[in-house]
């Protein structure tokens, strides 16, 4: 159960090797004995993540998760939830990749859409069904400001995030009154392995900053946040910039 101060006892990280997801797990690991299900592709990254969280006093259960294998998702969520309630589920997997390839190479484009949009819908449906039945729980969906106004420089990624953002906002509405909640998180540029080697955009943040904003939002029962909070104003401005001008902005 999530307690009165917003601390969960069990978290499911879908994309369990994501830097942001792991920062989140670390900040909740203050709670001794936090149970973390690391749903991720097997490999050294997952092993390292499990070892680190165990070091912090978490009980870690790694399970194999491939985002594009949507047929397996229902059984996977069911098996996680059969042992214990899912207090918080973090939808953290995602790919960015080479933006120019992402609209010119057919395979890359389809794969990106599958991982960033189809797979979140797939796990979202399974999680919603489960959380409704247990009468409580929070789904944290890692969206992006890139989806808020899709721009030329990364529109394949941005469009996939726009889709998942809309789906999870709607899911939150649909779940009202069920005890289950959805928190949509829109970070700006976050320094993680996804963005390694790229020039940081203005207002960039660390994975820890995202984690700290998310833990607060989960405790407060928020349903939509920007990280940093100032991004909200920036994006609100950008949304209204005419296309002709938007095109020429250096973003």
């Amino acid at each position: 159960m999530i307690n009165a101060l917003g601390r969960p006892q069990t978290v499911l990280l879908l994309g369990g090797t994501s830097d942001i997801a792991l920062a989140l797990a670390r900040s909740w690991a203050h709670e001794p004995g936090l149970y973390v299900v690391l749903a991720a592709r097997p490999g050294p990254r997952r092993d390292a993540a499990a070892a680190e969280l165990e070091q912090l006093g978490c009980v870690v259960e790694p399970i194999d998760f491939e985002a594009t294998d949507t047929a397996r998702h229902p059984a996977l969520i069911e098996s996680v939830a059969s042992g214990r309630d899912i207090d918080v589920a973090v939808v953290a997997f995602g790919v960015l990749g080479d933006e120019e390839r992402a609209w010119q190479d057919h395979e890359t484009a389809v794969h990106l859409a599958e991982v960033n949009y189809v797979a979140p819908v797939s796990v979202g449906v399974c999680l919603a069904e489960r959380l409704r039945r247990q009468g409580h729980g929070v789904i944290v969906a890692l969206s992006s400001v890139a989806g808020e106004r899709v721009r030329r420089s990364n529109f394949a990624y941005g469009a996939s995030k726009a889709g998942m953002d809309g789906f999870y906002l709607g899911l939150g509405e649909a779940l009202r009154g069920s005890g289950a909640r959805v928190l949509v998180v829109r970070p700006g540029f976050v320094h993680t392995k996804m963005t390694a080697g790229r020039d940081a955009a203005p207002l960039s943040v660390s994975a820890e900053q995202v984690a700290s904003a998310v833990t607060k939002a989960v405790a407060s029962g928020d349903d939509l946040i920007w990280v940093p909070a100032a991004m909200r104003g920036v994006m609100s401005g950008l949304r209204h910039v005419p296309r002709s001008l938007f095109r020429r902005l250096p973003i």
Partner: peptide, 17 residues
């Protein structure tokens, strides 16, 4: 009837029938 309940402190709401 479906309800969302808390205790007197109004924290940690959950749904029940």
């Amino acid at each position: 009837t479906d309800v969302v309940l808390t205790g007197w402190g109004r924290t940690a709401p959950t749904a029940a029938s």
